[in-house]
Design a protein around this nucleic acid. Structure first.
Lengths: 349, 349
DNA sequence: TTTAGCACTCCTTCTCGTCGAGTGCTAAGC
DNA sequence: GCTTAGCACTCGACGAGAAGGAGTGCTAAA
């Protein structure tokens, strides 16, 4: 069942040729590119076998060959040269990453943008929370008679705050007490539990202050729900239009609107391998059955992973995309690894 | 120079027909739709005049007529029926707006999305700050030996906070003092002035505490810079593909990537009129010369206006888009008008 | 097993003819 | 003087062939 070495070489040439030209590849062209000198007729015999075995397809009888998903899969698994990134590429990535990035949240969005422009395909980015965020600490700051600021420090080190208004005037003295109450009863638990505890307190706490607690709990409830909800950012979808396979406007529109409106259904990495490749029909989702996806993940803080995916035609430049994506993900992980250290004097290597 | 009533009627029919079919309009079709009974021959004479006057164009000698930008302009200014929105449309807008919207910032982004799906064209949305935001109040909250939370209340009522780390241990007692210092010296001024004051304090404040102030000022500096920087959100760019004028992939790609990568150059409303329409070459920007833009603005809080624009082919359904956009903008303004009132018992109208 | 040779297939491109929508012009009518 | 019927004319759209060519599969010989 294992292919002969020559068949593999031929398959490799077909895939790489087709990736760069988007045109079916003929026996003559293959013969010219193949290291071992054989005639096009021999190649034709081999090609016929490869079609029979399902690695190649023929658009019509007198056309050249095109890789099938199975062919791409074999290419990706065994045949592909695992490129490194060129010096210029590395320089470009490093330059982009050099810009200071403030909040972990923004990093995700930014990463997607960078990847898209760097690999030349549309991309998407998601933050993957290893565990659900909870509130670690509350603080209430009086502002004026009927308003105060609620500050919540989340378990993922993010700090969120919001100005809230009360219906009745409040006395600044009582706010610390309320903070204390929140800190003792409402930290480290999820939204449902919070609501439960709030109910329990309803007869122990005076009406107006109960309302205030209610407001705060509602606010952080929204916060946590939002924080734990995976937000997906897509970028550069219009890049699809540059590929001949998407010159059919309907196809392009389908995939583009899928990427924008059904972001949540874009594939997420399974298992542990650093870079994953999903080819054509390997995608569960109907809209992606004629496209391929390359996914990588990176660490960002202790409780979060960033995921970034690249979408393109099955005729995607897997070698380059995978190389760049994994270099990019590694760089990001390294960057955040560094940041975790207590900030010290800058040291040069 | 003023057109006869009949010419105007003919122009109106041509524009509306062309808007709905995207096909050049012939004299016979016009004759059928015109209220006054005239023959197609008469219409042809009129059409010839309208071409001569520059209101219509002819793709080729034996084709029907297509409105020129000048023709669209006259249509928009004088001929267009100013529709209201239908009951269903109003219901849909109200339903979308009923969803609770938390932060003023998110409203902008959300508004763009809503508008795009509601009018069926791509849209963009911007927050327009009437005056630059400044910090109104600082608060520092101790967390542990080497970290604290900086809270800043901005003049536009937003509250921002961030966890900051110090290099040396800090004593919680001294933080209120620092807060006070920040509140007395660093409120109500812009970033440059802040940096100036910080310099002045450099010899009055002990080294480690100066570093802390420095961190806080740097943080709010970024905050204000970002807040005052107009961020543009684009939405639904892929909707362009549904229009025949963008079946040419290059055109589509041009405009789409312009909307995504050059957001800042999308037109902003001038003057006071509630809804503005820019037709084809009236757009300053080269990439928009063959497209039209409809812009509206709405009030959102006291220091901010939201702007939302719709982009489409010159053959845009101006009447519907303008009607929906202005209804939408009004609804949003009203919604925020309400919110400004101190929250009371809900009252039904 | 490889290869040259050759007939064959089928896509692409071009041309040509037809069709029809729509025009512009002329001349007659109101 | 405006309107209209009539008609020749223009020009794109569409389809049918014809030509060209890339590439194949098969056969038979090396």
């Amino acid at each position: 069942m294992e292919l002969t070495e020559r068949k593999k070489q031929i398959l490799k040439v077909v895939v790489e040729d087709y990736i760069s030209t988007a045109e079916p590849v003929g026996s003559k062209a293959i013969a010219e590119q193949l290291s071992s000198k054989v005639s096009s007729a021999t190649i034709r015999n081999e090609l016929a076998d490869l079609v029979e075995l399902g690695y190649l397809e023929q658009p019509h009888t007198s056309a050249g060959r095109v890789p099938s998903p199975k062919g791409y899969r074999l290419y990706v698994n065994e045949l592909m040269d695992h490129k490194g990134v060129s010096e210029e590429d590395a320089a470009q990535i490093n330059a982009t990453l050099a810009e200071p990035m403030a909040q972990a949240e923004q990093v995700i969005a930014k990463a997607g943008q960078m990847v898209s422009s760097f690999v030349g395909y549309p991309s998407y980015a998601v933050a993957d929370h290893k565990s659900a965020a909870v509130v670690q600490r509350f603080e209430l700051i009086p502002v004026d008679e009927t308003s105060f600021i609620a500050v919540a420090m989340l378990s993922d080190k993010r700090v969120k705050s919001q100005l809230l208004h009360t219906q009745l005037p409040i006395s600044a003295e009582k706010l610390p007490e309320m903070s204390h109450l929140l800190n003792t009863h409402f930290t480290g638990i999820n939204v449902e539990q919070m609501n439960g505890r709030l109910m329990n307190l309803s007869d122990q706490v005076d009406g107006q202050w109960f309302l205030l607690l209610n407001q705060v709990v509602e606010y952080v409830g929204d916060l946590l729900t939002e924080a734990n909800h995976q937000q997906v950012f897509t970028n550069g979808t219009s890049r699809l239009l540059q590929f001949p396979e998407f010159h059919d406007v309907d196809k392009a529109h389908n995939l583009m609107s899928f990427m924008v409106d059904n972001k949540e259904n874009l594939p997420m990495p399974q298992g542990e391998s650093p870079v994953q490749i999903l080819i054509g029909p390997e995608n569960v989702n109907e809209a992606l059955k004629e496209s391929s996806v390359v996914i990588a993940s990176y660490d960002i803080g202790d409780n979060m992973r960033g995921l970034v995916g690249v979408v393109g035609p099955t005729r995607m430049d897997y070698a380059t995309v995978a190389a760049r994506l994994s270099y990019f993900a590694d760089s990001l992980s390294r960057m955040f690894g560094k940041q975790e250290l207590p900030p010290k004097e800058e040291t040069k290597e």
